[in-house]
């Protein structure tokens, strides 16, 4: 149906849309600038990869990826419960450094910089999802389910409470809202989704290494969320499309692959800075970044 190239792009768009949606939940709706989000992506990827290589069936590994990331999400929230603003951003960034460092150094588990090759394609019993077209269907199903779930959640009263916590957590607590519990739930849900995205990433590429889960990746996801706009779910999805498609134009222009890599990063950085300077609410943002 789709060309192999289009399928590839769409799969990546789906994965990054999940990352954007989940970061938007915690940043745009709950007001937590979690620069460590990419660590959950990594935790999900490594968990799923290692479990399936040890023989665990894919659906369980996928679930475990989300759950383990979620547990880390809880502990991170516990650590930063009293922290705000740029300081929160720094601590969460520090967290992502520590996790990256573990991926790099715990070679007994993760093979360090060598990464983990040969990650199996998803399979359930006799049925193996070998083709990319099939994989795309899997990714799309998960993206659609996640989007519907988050849409329902953020439109409900619960969504309003999260936004109240974002806008003024003290005033929210004085109305009787359990602020820490709400922040923790949001963070855990966000990291769960990021973990799932990590698993999808690992099983698609069949190879992961620590460099996919470091600084430049968080900038990519943050750019998606900011360009899409804080507090807008469709913004995150649309921005994921834009952000992933634009660099592909570079490929068509015929630039050598050594150039495409850094050009793509430069493009993301310029986009991010440009949006912050010129249109800080991005495309569909309902809320300012603070």
């Amino acid at each position: 149906m789709f060309t192999p190239y289009a399928t590839h792009i769409l799969i990546l768009i789906g994965i990054y849309a999940l990352l954007g949606l989940s970061l938007n939940l915690v940043l745009g709706f709950t007001g937590l600038l979690n620069l460590g989000h990419i660590a959950f992506f990594g935790i999900g990827a490594y968990t799923s990869a290692l479990l399936t290589l040890a023989g665990v069936p894919f659906p369980l590994a996928l679930l475990a990826a989300g759950l383990l990331a979620s547990v880390f999400g809880f502990f991170l929230m516990l650590a930063v419960r009293k922290i705000k603003g740029d300081y929160l951003a720094l601590v969460t960034l520090g967290f992502s450094f520590v996790v990256y460092s573990i991926f790099l150094n715990w070679t007994g588990l993760t093979r360090g910089p060598l990464g983990i090759p040969g990650i199996p394609k998803p399979s359930l019993g006799m049925f193996t999802l070998a083709s990319n077209q099939g994989y795309l269907v899997l990714v799309l199903i998960i993206v659609v389910l996640t989007s519907l779930f988050l849409w329902r959640l953020t439109r409900s009263r619960f969504g309003r409470v999260l936004e109240a916590v974002r806008d003024d957590d003290l005033a929210a607590s004085v109305l009787g809202k359990p602020v820490f519990r709400l922040q923790a739930q949001s963070m855990m849900l966000s990291s769960f989704i990021a973990g799932i995205a990590g698993s999808l990433f690992a099983h698609y590429l069949t190879y992961i290494d620590p460099t996919s889960f470091f600084l430049s990746e968080i900038i990519l996801v943050l750019t998606i969320v900011i360009i899409g706009g804080l507090g807008s779910l469709r913004g995150s999805v649309i921005a994921a499309v834009i952000i992933l498609v634009i660099p592909e134009v570079l490929r068509f222009v015929g630039l050598p692959s050594a150039i495409v890599g850094p050009m793509r990063q430069i493009l993301y950085a310029v986009l991010l800075i440009g949006v912050l300077l010129l249109k800080p609410r991005g495309l569909f943002g309902r809320v300012d970044l603070t």
């Binding site: 779930f149 329902r152 959640l153 409900s156 009263r157 619960f158 309003r160 409470v161 809202k177 359990p178 519990r181 709400l182 739930q185």
Partner: peptide, 8 residues
């Protein structure tokens, strides 16, 4: 309104 699952 602070109950996630109930409101879902």
């Amino acid at each position: 309104d602070a109950k996630m699952f109930a409101n879902l």
